[in-house]
Amino acid sequence: MENLPKSRLTNKPPHYNLWVGVFVVMVGIFVGLFYIATQKISYNWRWNRVPIYFAYKDTVEVTATAEGEVESIAKDGKQAVITVKDADQSESYTVPADAVVVDQNEVISYGDVLARFSKWKPGLLIIGLWLTLKLSVIATILGIIIGIAGGLARLSSNPAAKWTTVVYVELIRGSPLLVQILIWYFVIGTVVNDLLAYYGIGRISAFWYGVASLACFAGAYVTEIVRAGIQSIHKGQTEAARSLGMSYAQSMRHIIMPQALRRILPPLAGQFISLIKDSSLLGIIAIRELTKAAREIVTTTLQPFEIFLMCALLYLVLTFTLSMFVQNLEKRMATS
């Protein structure tokens, strides 16, 4: 055994390191060629302009909303309270202590700056990323609920439940998501919001129609995944559970679902990774998620290369995190 080349022992193909090198060089050449090409069309890379879309320092000015005299500036540690008093009333403003730009007894009028300080604020990309995350998480949870209910209904012997699910799944899977989003917002949204206005209740924002469209879309696919998962569990499991006196619901909850869920985790993860990516379509109904935010930035900065590449990278962070999380979950379930 000692005389065998190391590659045989570790199951590595011959010249392993050589081919790793080839891979690295290929990636390098690809990136290099791309860079040279962009230089040829004289694209001006300005990566230094990108960080401000993650976070930037904003100057905040606290202005007076009353007219009169600065009665007092009470400093308390890092905070200061400026009190402005006019003929019959006084207004107080709490600001950072070192930001105050007025003096005691100074006479001020409406709109005068009382304090000026700078503050970190999240950039447009981060705001978009946060909205994408929020959309995806809510839609995923709703999608799972729809999918489990749908999967059970699909396998039910009740024709109303079964056929409703079949029609739902076929309709959703048979039409483009983009069209569904438009229908949710411009058709269902219009009807619902007009009805709500008619009865004097506030309207529902585009965000929720976006969530609904994604949840409904993912729910149809999850329904099929759950159905296949339940059907993949041997019917002897149900028989054993029922023969012990468990009801249908008990056997589903304690015996079938836990086993099915474990089995469908990989396709479920794929579905929800798709959902995160599909949320990029929601810009069409004016939800400022990550892609819409990126497009807005490009409109003002004319830096499509950096911004869209960064946008793709941020999606990758989300999907990769989810995929790692599910892999971890799978491992933990496999050991229990």
Binding site: H234, G236, Q237, E239, A240, A241, R242, S243, L244, G245, M246, S247, I255, P258, Q259, R262, S336
Partner: peptide, 20 residues
């Protein structure tokens, strides 16, 4: 039927133990 089945034990050819 669930109440009745609780009174009637059953053993299967393929065991059908709950693997999880």
């Amino acid at each position: 039927i669930n109440k009745l089945r609780a009174e009637v034990g059953m053993v299967f050819q393929s065991f059908n133990l709950f693997p999880h």
